[in-house]
Amino acid sequence: MLTADVEVDRRDFTVHASLTVAAGERVALFGPSGAGKTTVLETIAGLVWPRRGLVELGGRVLTSTGSPAVEVPPWQRRVGLLRQDPGLFPHLPVRANLLYARSAAGAELTTIARQLGIDELLPVMPARLSGGQRHRVALGRLLLAHCDALLLDEPFASLDETLRRALTVLVKDLSSERKVPSVLVTHQLSDAQAFADRLLVMDQGYVLQAGAPDEVVLRPATRRVAELVGYLGFVPAAADGGGHGAAGSPAGSGATGSAGTGAGVVAGVHPDRVMP
């Protein structure tokens, strides 16, 4: 299990985040750019020191600002962090890149390479790989390192939608199979829904709402959450959502839903979701 309860000062605001990710569970931190999502991942990975906080993984304290303070170095945390840049070693072939975090080869290399569809690329140099192939190699290296947690910072954002979705689903399946807690940072709602068991919506350093992805999308707790998950055209509504509640109803090309605000309840239309 991975737990993090941290406050991290940034130049424009302080990030406040608390999350628990069970073994094999997948959580997505979703929100606009600059919301503080990457800061949370970097704090878990040991790259950022919080003003206040505690990070634990599998019963091990990785970060603690208490007394005595604990700060386990990033390379000793057994936490894998995958970013947009695959970070392959250009002078090493695919096989050597995959095995960089391991001391010996074996059947596992063959299995992982086959699962990722790169088993025929083992002797190839990174310069000859496509963008999607490089990301698969970086993912394979992470999996072969047998990390106790996976942190994914929009690793496939530069890829086309079809490949991005395929790799997201692949990571989802492998993390569940290995019973590894995994956290994905993304500003693409479709990626979050495809990957996560639980969605945390972040904005300006705060978690605004947490829950199952469909629950958050269909029942946004506030107008800001509704805006972030794609609702448009807000108008005042009755407290009961006009008989439909927050779950939504057919409305032309999209679904309607209601969300609370400081001024009362409003209804919005989501153009991509039509309720049966």
Rank of each mutant, 00 (worst) to 15 (best):
2 L>V: 09
9 D>L: 07
11 R>G: 09
15 V>A: 11
15 V>D: 10
17 A>G: 05
18 S>I: 10
19 L>T: 10
27 V>C: 04
30 F>T: 04
32 P>K: 01
33 S>M: 02
34 G>I: 00
36 G>C: 01
41 L>F: 00
41 L>Y: 01
44 I>G: 05
46 G>T: 11
49 W>N: 11
58 G>K: 09
59 G>I: 02
62 L>N: 11
63 T>S: 14
65 T>P: 15
67 S>V: 13
67 S>K: 14
70 V>L: 15
76 Q>L: 13
78 R>G: 08
79 V>S: 14
80 G>R: 15
81 L>K: 10
81 L>M: 07
99 L>A: 02
107 A>F: 05
108 E>R: 02
114 R>Y: 01
114 R>V: 05
116 L>K: 04
121 L>C: 03
124 V>R: 09
125 M>N: 05
127 A>R: 13
127 A>L: 09
130 S>K: 12
136 R>I: 05
137 V>W: 03
140 G>K: 03
140 G>E: 04
141 R>L: 00
146 H>P: 14
149 A>T: 07
149 A>N: 09
149 A>H: 08
151 L>N: 12
158 S>L: 14
159 L>V: 03
160 D>T: 08
172 K>V: 02
173 D>P: 03
174 L>E: 09
175 S>F: 01
176 S>Y: 04
176 S>K: 07
181 P>M: 09
196 A>L: 01
204 Q>Y: 09
206 Y>D: 13
207 V>C: 06
210 A>C: 07
210 A>R: 00
211 G>D: 03
211 G>L: 04
214 D>I: 10
214 D>K: 06
218 L>V: 08
225 V>T: 00
229 V>C: 03
229 V>F: 00
230 G>N: 05
234 F>P: 05
238 A>P: 06
239 A>I: 05
242 G>E: 08
245 G>W: 08
256 T>P: 13
256 T>L: 15
262 G>N: 13
268 G>S: 14
271 P>G: 13
276 P>K: 12
